[in-house]
Each structure stands twice: as C-alpha cells, then as structure tokens.
Amino acid sequence: MRKALNYFLLSPALLISLLIVFIPGLLTIIVSFTDWNGVSTTPEFIGLQNFNELFVDSIFWQALFNNVKWTLIFITIPIVIGLLTAMLLLKRKRTKSVYQLIFLFPYILAPTTNAILWLNIIFNPVSGVVGYLQEAGIPIDSPLSSMNTALYAVAAVDVWHYWGFLTVVFLAALRQTPLDQIEAAHLEGCNGWQLFRYVYFPTIKPTFNILFIMIIIFSFLTFDYVYLLTGGGPSHATEMLSTYAYTFAFSAFQVGKAAAIALFMSFFGLLASCFYIWMSRNELKN
C-alpha cells in the first residue's frame, strides 16, 4: 500500500519524462534507420544507409571536428577564468557578492539577447564596433564572416556568457575548504599556487570533475549561440552536429538523417554520462 503510494507520487515526473523524452527518443532511434521525411505515413527501412551516407559526408566530419574544437575551448578557457576569479574572490570579504552579481549578468540573459546584441553592436561591419574601427582605419573585418575566425568568435560570445557561472560554483566549492588546512599551509610557507594545488584543489575536486564532464557533454550539444550567430556558416565553418541535424530535419526534411546525427550526438553524451554515473557511484550507494 505504502509502496504503491510512493510510485503514485513519483508518477507525474516519470510519466512526463517518459512521454516527452524517452518514447520520442526511442522513435528517433527507429527513424534513423528509415528514409522518413516527417509527414509520410509509410517510411521505408533503409538499414544503415543514413549512417553510411554520413560517414562519407565531409560536412558531417567537419561538424564533428568543430564540436571537438569547441570542447577543447570550453574545458580550458572558461575553467581557467572561473578558477582564477573564484580564487581572487575568496579573499574579498566585502566586494565578493557584488563581483559575483556582475559576473552572472551575461549568464542570466537569454542566448537570443546575447547573440543579437553581439551581432549588432560589436560584430556589425557597418554600425557596430567593428565598423567603427574600420572607419578609424584599422583593417578589421567581422570575425564572423571569415572561415578562419568564425568558430572562435562564436565561442568567444558563448564563453563571455558562461564563465561567470563557473566562478560562482567554484567559489562556493572553494569556501568549503577546512580553515585549519589553510592555516597550516600558510605556516608552512606555501605560495599561492601551492596553496591552490595542494589545499584548495583537493577540496573542490568532486565539483571540478562534475563540471568538467558536464562541459564536455554540453559541448557536443551546443546549439543556441552557433545557430543564432552564424547558422553554421560561413560555408559550414561553424557547423556543429546539432545545427547540422536541425537543418536536415527542418530545411531538407530528411528526418531519418537528422535522427542519425542526433544518435551520434547522444552517443558522446552517453559516454560522458556513463563516466559521470560511474564517478557518482559512491553517492548512489549511500
């Protein structure tokens, strides 16, 4: 009786998730082996054809490679900025909360707003800062329009919006470091780096690991800023698996192929998820 009641209490959350995430997710797996266009009621099974076509599609590989680049950027730059600023904030008693709020402003704004404001006031070659610098005689073009720089320009906007989140989370984790350890390290004459490496970092390691994995997972899913700033262009220079799948589904109506790419993205996420679950196994046990 009591047991049934508990399942009943769990059911709204579980049902919503199963109906909207799990079952359509299974459908996507099935669809990836068909030539479904989204409307036809008689899609045909075509086996591995979608996957085979993707494997010889150079844009697909480019997108995958871009996702890897994106991951490398995000597991380094925002993490370094986040750790640095969090360490600096640790010693600021009065100004800490003000800095935290300022750093979070870009994070709480909508990707749409952030992308459009950068697109207009910074990157616009006519009326933006880039255009102004051109007028002033500095040979600069919108970094979004060059194949060599577009990816970094998009990543820069996303990093600008994201790093404040890491600062706040790292700061909260750093503050859990036992005081006596910090004092002992000071007595031993540790310098700043040693203090971080041997006293603070071990404390925040669990948090650091979780965020690290999350960043890798979400780097393979990244969509908003790329889609809004470049739409994957110029000539696929910023194409990601997510934008490529989206184009297949809603521009080319090759839903089967879009599904195949989505499966690919999930595969990387799932690898990282397994790793994540494996790391939090102790928490699951007790």
């Binding site: 899913l221 989505a262 998820s273």
Partner: peptide, 14 residues
C-alpha cells in the same frame, strides 16, 4: 541522470 544529459535533438524531431 541520463535524461538530463541527452541532446534535445534526440527527441525533438518525432
């Protein structure tokens, strides 16, 4: 945990 980390694109199209 898995549902939190799967891509939206995995269930979006169907």
């Amino acid at each position: 945990m898995v549902a939190m980390t799967i891509p939206i694109q995995l269930f979006l199209f169907p």
